[in-house]
Structures are given as C-alpha cells and as structure tokens.
Amino acid sequence: MSSRILVAEDDVRQAQVLRMYLESEGHSAVVVHDGRSAIDAARRQRPDLIVLDVMMPKVDGLDVCRILRTESTVPVLMLTARSSEDDLLLGLDLGADDYMTKPYSPRELMARVRTLLRRVERTAAPDDGVLKVGAITVDARRHEVRGASGEIVPCTRGEFTVLSAMAAEPGRVFTRKQLLERTRGWDVSSTERTVDMFILNLRKKLELNPRRPTHLLTVHGVGYKLTAGPEPAGD
C-alpha cells in the first residue's frame, strides 16, 4: 500500500533516514524542517499520515498538532525527546494518534506507521454501523454489544459510548481524558475515575478473565486501547 507521508523533523539527517525507510516501503515522503512548513505542507499535500517531531523551530510540534487537528483527522505519529508522562499525555490529548520517544528504531517506527495506516483503512467505517474488533461486535444503530459467543452483553450508556469510541479505532491508545470527552455530552458529572470504572465493568462483561484482559488493555501511564486479542500461535 503506497501512501503520502509528511515528515516534519528539524534534524536533517534523521529526516533523510526516515525518508529512505518510507520510500523503501513504497510510500512517497515529503520532508520539512520547521513547524510552519509542516502546517503549510499538510494543507497543500493532504498526506495520509504525518510523522511529527515535537521540538521544531518557528512552531513546535504540539502547536502544529493542535492546529491541524481542528482541520483534519489525518493520523499523527509524534516524535519526542521528552520522556515525561505529562508531555506524552499532552501530545495525545492534542490529538496525536501515537508517539515514540527518541532515540528510536526506524524499523519500529515503520511498524507503527503500518499500524496507523491499517487503522485508517479500518475506520473508513462500515455503512451498517457495525464495528467488529476480534470477538467483540458493537452495533451503533441497535445500541448492542455482542461478546465472543454472539450473546448480547448489556451495557450502560457510558460503557457503550467508551467502547464505541475505542472500537472505531482499534489499537489506538486513548487517554482517560479523551475517553471522558466522549461521555461529557450526556453526563457532565463524569470524571477520569469514571472512565476507569467503565473499563473495569466492560472487562467483567467481555473478557474471559477480567484480571488478565486480552482485548481492553491498559497502557501504563497513558490510558487504554481495544485490540482484537492475542495473535494465534504459529505452527
């Protein structure tokens, strides 16, 4: 699958390494070295994905992400030398879809790129409103959740809202704040602790072993993600 990738990285050498890896996988890469150019290129090129460094001249990556997220849903993979939890959470709260801390392996970055691009394909969502992630099915029109055996699993409105958001983008890491924003439209009293309770209850309803979840996973220090479950063992 060939995609247009925008690389916004002020380290010229690192940017060229990324370009080489992207082009070796058949993608076309546009490289810029400052935040203002990143905004202009994103608007002009309409890329399928943006690899965005945080520390850039003119406009930093966090502001670039904030600006572009008001205009587009393009996936953003953020690169940061900042390793503190607050900085990583800020990037995700601004709308970044994934992040990597420097130094990083270019091969791992390519794997993240492939994952994000596959997610974009999946979220060109089905017309029937049914989302399926592994053994879990979420039917938005019927407001139904089904588990592994196909039985209807009763969910509260909050649980359904959180699960629907995660099912629309399987594999994406959501912060508690991002999930909370999904529920605020109908329950202004919700808190981030409420999100933890929604996840806990959903695990009890959907996981074979809620203490060892395989679908609703915790990403420590960040939040939660929904996956299809463990890959089948090879021969």
Results as ranks from 00 to 15, higher is better:
103 P>E: 11
80 T>E: 00
150 G>C: 09
86 D>T: 12
78 M>N: 01
64 V>E: 00
91 G>A: 12
113 V>K: 01
137 T>K: 14
86 D>S: 13
67 I>W: 13
79 L>G: 05
120 V>A: 15
117 L>K: 04
77 L>K: 00
69 R>M: 10
72 S>T: 14
92 L>A: 05
133 V>Y: 04
132 K>D: 11
115 T>Y: 06
56 M>T: 02
153 V>Q: 03
168 A>H: 12
136 I>D: 05
133 V>G: 03
166 M>T: 06
109 L>M: 11
113 V>N: 06
133 V>I: 03
137 T>A: 12
158 G>M: 13
64 V>S: 01
117 L>I: 10
146 R>C: 13
154 P>S: 04
131 L>P: 04
143 H>A: 12
113 V>H: 05
113 V>F: 05
131 L>N: 10
87 D>V: 07
119 R>L: 09
148 A>D: 14
62 L>R: 08
169 E>K: 10
65 C>I: 01
105 S>R: 08
149 S>L: 14
158 G>C: 08
155 C>L: 11
112 R>Y: 02
165 A>Q: 08
85 E>Q: 14
164 S>Q: 13
77 L>D: 02
72 S>M: 13
64 V>G: 03
95 G>L: 05
118 R>S: 11
61 G>H: 03
170 P>G: 05
163 L>G: 00
77 L>R: 01
58 K>Y: 03
130 V>H: 01
156 T>P: 12
149 S>V: 10
148 A>P: 12
86 D>K: 07
140 A>P: 01
63 D>Q: 13
